[in-house]
Design a protein around this nucleic acid. Structure first.
Lengths: 344, 344
DNA sequence: CTGAAAGCGCTAACAG
DNA sequence: CTGTTAGCGCTTTCAG
């Protein structure tokens, strides 16, 4: 058997309570006593049993991160920010990867009841009012990333504003016939980004109608919708193909609601023998790693920063469970590369 | 306070032992009794306290994954395989992200002593004999991924064989002046891949000398080595620049020991006003996501599969701690895309 | 300041 | 089959 607090106590000739005080640097212990205990700990190579501590302290030192599976691009930076920040707080992270929607509630329930973690972070997942309430009642701190909820803490980018800036950039480049390519209409980012797009168009006095938007919903291939709310490469490709067939309209620019959609669209453009930005200017959203390699102009979401903030926020809530919910919104920044150009 | 096993016992009018039997589907319980208990559990919405279970059972239901930080590319697929497989076994995963080498031993020690997890997976990290021994003595199952050790379980790709195939592909395309660009000479994959490269050259009766390899070690910029053992984009770029300056040699093909190095090299080639595969054929190693977007010919490492196997192997060891260490090696497969061409 | 003792919530003998 | 009890290893009163 491994060495326990009793072994240390025996060797140091003190009670186990004193050992506990020594390792939890309690102030109620004489420096000299502490020294003796520490030496015994050294000698035996003792490390507290995390699970036993957890049970006694009623806290685990663990956070849960529930995130969707499909898109590696986005989440790596987020994770980096989270892990970096977490190490400051001496907390560990359990990863729950959701690859089918049905699993979502399962994980939410587990974090709610199993008490394996002290708090939870969710990513790009709608949280229903029902679950929001459950978390509040159970007093399990939660922060929702990349999605909004007015009753609980959340951090996300200003989707509306970002879409507005993206569209405005296109307009400033001289484009007036602009089409938005987007994912599943039902998803919150799709809706918010559409609002920003439409607002920018209206503000510039430009025409906007049903033909101004091609969403994954309208595409033939039904499997397209399944993956990542329709924000996938194939959806972008199919949407662009659809646009290319509608050759009547003199569209000159595309606002893609995600980089992946933009990449799919560019593929379709290339395959049609056309080129970017000569035939079409295109701007994406996210600034995933691929974007820089493909020189895609896009709206940058500060993923690393968001990850960091999410952790800091949840640590605050862990300190003070009564701290009222706070909705944080960050502004995405435009990154101009080579897929957008002045209309000649 | 949340509902405990005592509440359930009281409501079901049984002892807590019986409740325990019911939830752990023990065979020593009358179906009728079990039914009553289950109903009580339903009614109260009881979920066992994972930490308390862990303490009593002496197992946590958690695996630790210790992985390096810097390269998102490689690890996403690996994680997917792991998580997918893990869900089959009802195990959770704690992620330890190593972003400075000094942290490595810290995490190894923690998994060894803290007993927060039942087993550990390490990735792309050399495990010293000292630690290997510690794991064996402590009887904590470990499987080492993407690195070898003869005393403990490990899974990796045949680096030597992969490099051989890559080089052979170049040779079959008619190239004879081939240079290998690689990371830190000290890293095991760099060494193994060099062996494969050299063997292929020799087998084809081709010249191989000091000029045939440019490693990150020989590069001016010292920061290059820091990141990911010299397997980074900048190192690839600098190495290629160095080669381009050495214009005397009529090198026509490059074997890059990783895709990221290849991408860096291609950048340098492009910036020199040359092109791939016209001026240089280039093949990478890994088949990261970017590779397909950039049409890079490369050696594919079956990451998802490796992740799956790592989990399966560690579950076996969890079942049977005496199971002898096993070294598994998978063959990488060539993926021919557009950066390699016949020499004309 | 420090030792003893009472839990934390559950599992696993041990009787019956 | 089932209730009771003794831990699992640690924290935290509670006396002293």
């Amino acid at each position: 058997m491994a060495v326990t607090i009793y072994d240390v106590a025996k060797l140091a000739k003190v009670g186990i309570g004193t050992v506990s005080r020594a390792i939890n640097n309690s102030s109620h212990i004489r420096p000299q006593t502490k020294k003796v205990v520490m030496e015994a700990i050294q000698e035996l190579g003792y490390t507290p049993h995390a699970i036993a501590q957890g049970l006694a302290r009623k806290k685990t030192g663990i956070l849960a991160a529930i995130m969707p599976f499909y898109t590696g691009h986005f989440y790596h930076e987020l994770l980096r920010g989270i892990m970096k920040s977490l190490s400051t707080f001496e907390y560990d992270l359990i990863l729950y990867y959701v690859d089918r929607v049905e699993m979502k509630n399962n994980f939410l329930d587990r974090t709610l009841h199993e008490r394996r973690c002290d708090g939870v972070l969710t990513f790009s997942m709608e949280i229903s009012d029902e679950y929001a309430e459950k978390y509040i009642n159970a007093k399990v701190p939660i922060v929702v990333v990349d999605r909004a909820h007015d009753k609980i803490d959340c951090i996300q980018v200003k989707n509306d504003e970002g879409a507005y800036s993206a569209t405005k950039h296109l307009i400033e480049m001289g484009h007036s016939r602009i089409v938005m390519i987007t994912g599943h209409n039902n998803s919150a980012p799709a809706r918010d980004r559409y609002q920003g797009f439409a607002r920018a168009m209206r503000d510039a006095g430009l025409l906007i109608d049903a033909d101004s938007i091609i969403s994954a919903d309208g595409l033939d291939d039904p499997t397209i919708l399944k993956q990542n709310d329709g924000f996938n490469e194939r959806a972008g490709e199919m949407a662009m193909k659809k646009l290319l067939q509608r050759n009547k309209a003199e569209v000159t620019a595309i606002f893609a609601a995600s980089d992946i959609l933009a990449i799919g669209a560019m593929k379709a453009i290339r395959e049609a023998g056309l080129s970017v930005p000569n035939d079409y200017s295109i701007i994406g959203f996210d600034d995933i790693e691929l974007a820089s390699y493909l020189s895609l102009t896009t709206m940058k979401q500060p993923m690393y920063e968001i990850g960091r903030m999410a952790v800091e926020r949840i640590m605050e809530k862990l300190e003070n469970k009564e701290s009222p919910a706070r909705q944080v919104q960050l502004s995405p920044a435009i990154v101009v590369r080579k897929t957008t150009a002045k209309l000649v």
